[in-house]
């Protein structure tokens, strides 16, 4: 392969950013699928952390091969999604939001206090086993799947739930089943993103999956919008690249993410990419 040296230099310099773009794209999609069904989960970072910790522990302690840790990284967050989603999906939307913020806070405390999980030092020496092409292939696959689902009957049902739940119920949409299914899909996807990012960075720590990343993931989806699966990924790209360009201190990035959420909800409810998918008539 004849890659010009300047291109390969550029790539190695910005490798972290290239990985973050793919991982954040997956996280934005995991947020999208929940929001598209009219719910709010603030546990995306927690689900990501569960995937990261589960996969890292399997790799480090049991020397499991990389292809085997990925399914585990999806199953563990799904179990927690069922635990938290089971009771809350029967209730009003705020209960899921509250319980999922709580999940993030408690997991941070657990990682910090349980020595078998690395404690305050976190887990280091994770092999960088996640190939870059795999991250982007999975992102493309997820986009394609959500695109197909969005245009189908299921997508229509989700949109109906989002705009008017009572009407959707009356039209025979099984709202509870869709809610649980979207939460499970979202947890699996976030867990996958967690495993991929843990296996491209060598180190994970208890504070990597707390309140701030949870809010940042929400800001990706709100900036891009949820009219189509492309939109949240665009949001993730913008909010991953912007701080890189500004070269500011870490707090600046958090302030930016917070302000983006406020402005998007107040003034830009359909997001930057307001264009919506077309559907064939039923």
């Amino acid at each position: 392969m004849s890659v010009p040296p300047w291109l390969s230099d550029l790539f190695w310099t910005y490798q972290n950013v290239v990985v973050s773009l793919g991982v954040n794209g997956l996280l934005a999609l995991s947020m999208y699928v929940v929001l598209a069904a009219g719910q709010l989960s603030l546990g995306q970072a927690a689900f990501m952390g569960l995937g990261a910790y589960a996969s890292a522990l399997l790799t480090l302690r049991l020397h499991a091969p990389f292809w085997a840790v990925l399914p585990a990284a999806m199953l563990v967050p799904v179990a927690f999604a069922l635990l938290v989603g089971g009771p809350t999906l029967r209730l009003a939307g705020v209960y899921l939001a509250i319980a999922t913020i709580g999940l993030g806070e408690v997991l941070r405390a657990v990682y910090l206090n349980v020595d078998a999980l690395g404690g305050a030092l976190g887990l280091s020496g994770i092999p960088e086993a996640a190939p870059l092409w795999l991250i982007y292939a999975l992102l493309a696959a997820a986009l394609l799947v959500f695109w197909r689902i969005g245009r189908s009957r299921v997508g229509r049902a989700m949109e109906a739930m989002r705009s008017d739940e009572t009407a959707a119920l009356a039209m025979g949409v099984n709202v509870r089943r869709y809610r649980l299914a979207t939460l499970v899909a979202s947890a699996a996807l976030a867990g996958l993103a967690g495993a991929l990012s843990a296996h491209s960075t060598d180190f994970i720590g208890p504070n990597d999956y707390g309140f701030e990343p949870a809010v940042s993931i929400l800001s990706f989806a709100l900036l891009g919008g949820i009219g189509s699966p492309i939109a949240p990924v665009v949001g993730a790209v913008v909010l991953t690249l912007l701080p890189e360009l500004m070269r500011g201190f870490a707090e600046l990035r958090l302030i930016l993410n917070g302000v983006v959420i406020v402005l998007a909800v107040l003034f830009l409810p359909r997001g930057l990419v307001a264009w919506r998918m077309r559907r064939r008539a039923a």
């Binding site: 701030e212 800001s219 302000v259 959420i261 406020v262 998007a264």
Partner: peptide, 8 residues
Amino acid sequence: VTLGAVLA
């Protein structure tokens, strides 16, 4: 909105 505001 309050979530974004409080992080900022």
